[in-house]
Structure formats: structure tokens, C-alpha cells
Design a protein around this nucleic acid. Sequence first.
DNA 1: AATAGGACTTGCTATAACACTC
DNA 2: GAGTGTTATAGCAAGTCCTATT
Length: 926
Amino acid sequence: MSVQACSNSVFDDDDDGPVIFKRSSTVSKKNKSNSEVKKSSSQKNDGKLERQVPSGPVSISQKNKEPSPKPSVVKSPVTGTKASTSSGSVSPLKSPVTGTKASTSGKVSPLKSPVVNSKASVSAADQSKQSLKQNISSVKKEEKHLVKSSAEPENDSADSEDDKPLSSRLSSGLLKGSSNNVDKGATASPGSSMIPKSKLSLKRPSDDSDDEKPLSSKFQLKPHTGTSASKVSDDEDEKPLASKLRLNGSSAKAAQPGKSNMKDNKRPLDAVSSLGQSSVKKPKVESSIPTKVKSVSVKSEPKLEDDDQIPIAQRMKKAGTGTKPLPTKQKVTKVVSTPPKKTIMKTKKVTKTSKYSKSTKVPPSSGEGQKWTTLVHNGVIFPPPYKPHGIKMLYKGEPVDLTPEQEEVATMFAVMKDTDYATKEKFIENFMTDWKKILGKNHIIKEFKYCDFTPIYEWHQREKEKKKQMTSEEKKAFKEEKLKQEEKYMWAIVDGVKEKVGNFRVEPPGLFRGRGEHPKMGKLKKRILPSDITINIGKGVPVPECPIPGQSWKEVKHDNTVTWLAFWNDPINPREFKYVFLAASSSLKGQSDKEKYEKARKLKDYIHTIRVNYTKDFTSKDLTKRQIAVATYLIDKLALRAGNEKDDDEADTVGCCTLKVENVNLIPSNSLEFDFLGKDSIKYHNIVEVEPPVYKAIGQFKTGKSDGDDLFDKLDTSKLNAHLKELMPGLTAKVFRTYNASITLDEMLHKETRVGDVAEKLVVYNSANKEVAIICNHQRSVSKSHSAQMSRLTEKINELKDVLDGLKVDLSRAKKGKAPLKDANGKPKRNLAPEALERKIAQTNAKIEKMERDMQTKEDLKTVALGTSKINYLDPRISVAWCKRHEVPIEKIFNKSLLAKFAWAMDTQLLTMIKGIPSRVCLSSQ
DNA sequence: AATAGGACTTGCTATAACACTC
DNA sequence: GAGTGTTATAGCAAGTCCTATT
């Protein structure tokens, strides 16, 4: 990557405008209509109403808010112009591309990047630093520039590019300019502007974290580098989606100012409302479902900026150096053995070969899809066998004798007594069905209603208590013993480098905890045995010994085109697998993470054209084209997920392509209200102002259909992604989420960071993080102790206010030369000078203000999960560069595991340090 | 073209590990 | 130093997106 110095964002300027470009229109026509009605809609049904309420105006801000009252459209949308009010935050976006757009300016971004690679990647950041020095020398960098015109995105061919290591790429932005660009510049929409900022409170930074680095072992990573070649990019601009921001949160949030919040909790309540949701499935929490509403106007236009940086990543592996991986291995491919097959047979597929061709996944550099050359590990560790406790549960009030197998399942249920699952009808039904199979036909236990698991539950509570009461020495010894047993399974050696294994523990048996209204919740997840497990390991190295005497693995493969070390079929859904992968800190995962962010950066070069094209297709006569255009717009603006089809034996949730008619309501004059259950049955409720043509198109898509019919009946994720790939090599729906999340962070950090202390800067970072979380609808349930914590804070604040009042009285008396009054206990207080009292008053005031701020932050974030976006969507190079530039310790942003996971991105910092290169990262690479 | 299979990534929650308060 | 609040991790469910088959 390149680093750029940009201090400013280069991009900022950009605009987005519509451009004209071409977009391929290929749309497919075809399609059948789907009929699908399949699942009926359930979801929504009712839902809407209810929840709406809450949403209110506020909306935005609160995002979650629950109840917003206002539903009315009004609120939300900000009007065209900017946005809204938001109080807080957000900003609206502008329109984007509208038809016209403007154009203008093109932007260029320049960039380039030098690359550097070093081998060293260290694992931990720290390490990195230290080692840096050493490595430095070794580092190599390269730069290249490429250029490519954006205009045409190349197709696949291009892909290669992506793969390439950043380094290779350069920005070319400048150059490019041309071509298409014409447009490029434009855009910016007039009003647009970006995002809003948020004001909101953030959480405080807490901070902490430690760091330390992990193991390190990793140093070397893989080499892959890509080849160079790349194309290039152009410039462009694109704005970010900031817009989105608004959506979700932004405006909304802003709007709401605070307080209101308190009321509800997001999830919960709403949920209720949601009830409506359809029939079947319900939201996850039942009662609690959050709602989030946000209103925002969306418009398009984002902007971006940034700079780049360099990543590194490239690590070398031993062998190879630079760029390509070792050739030798290539052949390895053959080594590969087949992949798992399922029921089917296992023919092996030699096919993999094909992969190389296109799959984006395959790093170019690596030979066809090859992920490793040598792989050594010790397999997996199994949970200990069940130890019967002998506690008898009651049936019709009488103790019942159970065999260990029967008791084991009864205990699984008993232990869940405190969870919501224990009272769910479906859960109980599925549990009883599976348990009865183990009890046998003639068992005395027939009906759940006569079962009393209390004795077992109480035994379990006692066991937990006992564990808690262990002395710290006992706990420590216990831990050490466990570590000793697991140590050998914790590591794998990949291409000679010791890497941490992620989930080396086989999942223990239990009752399935499906989210939302999962039809299979409560079913027994049977114990996994060695004979269920397929091991993948390098050829010629010792096969892990089966840990259970007398048993053996189901199969042992040597497939170096995949990254899993082992897998077994999911006992709940036998057609699916559970894999054992390396940990997030491994170079294999890091490489793929980097590729993901590089793809998002690349989208920056295409986004303008893509927006112009879909804007143009909002009014296409071809229905399929129109649906693709609107769906792409929603994915871009609202950060919706693609929405694959789901089976009937899964919770009834939807994504963009699977939205039902009932999930989107028209609110004149051009706002849309979205209300559905998304991934993990998390409620998505948002009122957004959209481009008039989109409003009109949605109305057309709804016409003549029932609530449960598919809104986008001519579309599914395959068609949508196939279309996106025509616009940019490797582009899929989820790339928009990564792109918009990262660009939003980058923009907000760039615009809002001010001179100040670290704490103030962290507030800005967390604010940006929150904005992204809202955009992506990352929610969390309100902690059980939330209201108690708030009350406690309120109490403390009131106490301070009393103290303040006393100080004021004392001050007044002191000024008159009188002694202070006695304290609450009747004891005399120290006689302080007026100046001293004034100082104390100021301190107390500051303390109160801080507490009130913290309280507001806590309230605002009670249903917002910041971690998910930080882990999966925010390009760590942006954070690293920002920390570097603003002198914020990276440990304040990334905890130990994130430092390890993003070791590949730390080089940026290094590089910067070494060369004095600046820092902002540019999303777009070139 | 639709479906199945397969390999990963994403995402929420429970729990462990700390940090803090009284 | 226990109880409690907070943050980091583990755990595992639920998506995405490709490729292979039917």
C-alpha cells in the first residue's frame, strides 16, 4: 500500500457524482418470476405497527431507540438537504447521484504506494516494533504504479489486481483522471456532504488494553505477494457512504438527544411489537427486540479521502521471497486431496484446479488456490466424557432413575433453566423429542409438564458455587492443568511457521441454541467422536494420534487448497460442517483479511461509476435491471446484507434480495420504512428518505403482490453478484459494507479529530466507530444490570449536587466572613478561603459534567455493539495511521487480540516510523 | 438454471479475566 | 478482599459467496 501523505484527505474532495460511465447493463433478463412465496412472510406482519411507534423521530439518533414515536416519516428524513438535524450526528447525505450530477471535478487521488514488505510481520504490534528495527533492513519495498482506467473496470482479468499486494499497486490516481473520469469529479453532490458528525457522546475511552504481544511466532508469514501487475485504478472519488451513516444512526441518533432513551431498550420491547412479525419466526429476543429506527435521508454521495499506507503483509515465508510463492509447490496442488464431500461422494475434485482461475479467493500469487505447502498440527481435543452426578430429577413429583446417557440430556436442559430457551415452546418440544429417543418408548417420562429438573438445576448451581469458592491457588492449578492438556493442540506449523489454532476444541454435546425463532432450537447436539472428524494435514508428516483409545479419524486428507485443519458434520444440520481453522492472528487469516480490505479500497475507484449506473437504471424499462439497480442502491446506502435464500428449517430472516413486500413501506413523499429481521434475527427498523425514482420503483415492485411475496422477485444474490462482478472484478454485495464502514471511519476521523489530549481523540474515534456500528446495524442486548447501573450513577450525581449546594452555601458564608455550616453529621467543616471553595465548586461541577456525559454515553451505547465493526469492517490501517498521526497509542484502539489479528496492518505504522511517511490510509489504493 | 456442497466470514452472547469500589 | 462492574475471549450460530451437480 501506499502510503500517502496525505494529509488531508485526498479524497475529500471528491465527490461523487454521477458520472456517467458505463455500467454494464447486462442484466439478466430472465428469471423467472420467482414465486416464492415461500416463507410467508411472516416477519413483518405486525410488526410494523408496533414498532413504529417508538421510532419516532428520534429515530435516528437513537437508532435503536425504541420507540420512537414518530414514525412519521417526517422526522426522519431529513430532507433533502442535509440532513438533518441531527442532532447529533449525522449527516445526511446527499444525493447522490442523481441524475445529473455533477460532475466535475475529478479527483484524483494519487497515491501510490510504496510498498514495503517486510517480512517481518510480526505478530504483535509490539513485537513488531521491536523487531522492526531489525527487520527494517530487510524490508524491501517496492513501488509501482499502475494505472488503470477506471472507466472500465476490468473484469476479471483484473482481478489479479486485487490480489496483489498492495504494494504492488500504486495509485495511479492521478493519472487517471481521465477517462471516465470525467465524471468523476463530479459529483459531489451539492448538498451532499458527508456525513455528519456525530456528536454524540461516546463512550469513553477506556481504554486499556494491553497489549502485549502475542506470540510471535508468527513472524514470517506467507509470502504471497502478489504479482504485480495490477491494474490500476483510477482515481476517483467516491464518496463514502457516509450517507449511510445517517441512516442508521446518524440522524437518528442525533436526533434523539438523549434522554429519551432511557426508556427503552431496544431490543426488547420492540420485539414485542414485532410480534407481528410473522408468523413464525420471531425476533430473537422476544421481548426484547430492539428496534432501531433511524431516519435518515439518504442520498448519495459520499466522499472519501484518505491516503494510503502501506501494509505489509507480505511476509515471506521461508521460501519464497517475494512475490510468488514458491513455485515448487505448485504442483502441490496435486497433492491436494479432495475436499470433503458430503454425502455425495467424494470424488475428488481435481477440479480445484479450476479455481485458480477465478476465484477471488485465491491469492494470485499463490499457485492455484494453494494455501500452504507444509502443514503440521496435532488434531483436535475432545471434551471429557460425561460424568454422571446421580442427582435424580422428579417426574410427577417422584425421583426418577436415569441412565447416564439419559441423565446427561436431562442435565443439559436443567442447566438452561435460567435462560429464555427453557420456556420456549419450540425448544421444549424439540428437546423432548430428542430426549425421548434416548429414554426409550417405555420410559416413565412421557410429558414435559410432569418433569421437574430442579434437583439437577440446584446441583449445578452448587457446583458452580464450589468452583467459585476455589482459592486462587486452586484455580491457578486447575488452569495450568488444563493448559498442559491443551498445549499441543493450540499450535500448528504452517510452512514452517508456528501459528495459533483457533477452535481446536471439539464442540461438546448440548442443546442447540438457535437464534430468533429457529425451528430446530432445543434439539440435541450429539457428542462428536473421532469417527466424525476429517483431518487435513500436510503429506508426509505424522497424522495426529486419535486421542480416544480404540477409535480413529473418519478420514485424513492432504488438501492444501483449503485452510481448515479438521471438520465434522454439524449434528443439527448434517449437510453443514463445523471447521477447525487457524486463529485470527495467523498469517493465513491475515492475508485474507488484507485482501478483503484491498478489495474495499478498490471499490473506491469504481463506486462513482457504479452509483451513476444504478441511478440511471432506477428508471430502466427492464424490470430486472430496475430491481438490480434499486437493490444495489439499498446495499450501498443502507449497508444491507445480500440476503441469500434460506431453508424452512432456519429462522425466518431476510437480507436485501429476500426482502418481502411487507418489510418495506412507502411513506410519502419519498421515504421508505424498512422493518425486518436480519442476520441473527436482529431487527432492522429504519425510515429513510430515498431518491424519488427509488421510491417510485419500490412502489412498482410492491404492486400486485401480497405481504409475504418477494419485493425483488427477479433477483437473488447470484444474479446480483454476477452483475456486480461486471462492474468491478471480484465485487460482491458484502464489499459495500466493508467499503462504507471503512470510508466512514476514515472520513469521520479526518474531519473531526482536533488538537487535544488522547482522551478527546478517543472520543472522536469511538464516535466514528459508533456511527459505523449503527450503519451496519450491529446491536447488542441491554445488559441485565443496565438500569441498576444507571440508577447508581444518577444517585452519585445527586450526591455530588448536594455537595455542590453545600459548597455554594459555604462560599457565600465565607465571603461574608462566616464559618461554614456543619456537615450532615453535625460535625464542623474546615474553614476554607473563598478561593479554595470556588476551586472545589469548579472541580465538583466538572466531575458532575463528566459523570453525566459518561451516563449519556452508556445509555447511547447500551444497544450498540462497537466490536463487530472493529473486528470485521474497519480497515485497521486507517486506525493505525490515525493513531500514528495523532499520537494515540494503538493499544487504546486495539486490544491484545486485535493487535495480533491486525499484525499485518501494523507495518504501516512501522513504515511510517521508518520513513516518516505519513499516514493516512487511503482506501483506495491507487 | 436451480440446487447442493463447501469454505469462509460475520455476529451475538456467555463466560472468563480483570479492574474497581467500599 | 469480597462484591461488582467492565472488558476481553471463547463459543458457536448464521451469513456470504463460490463451485459443482443435477
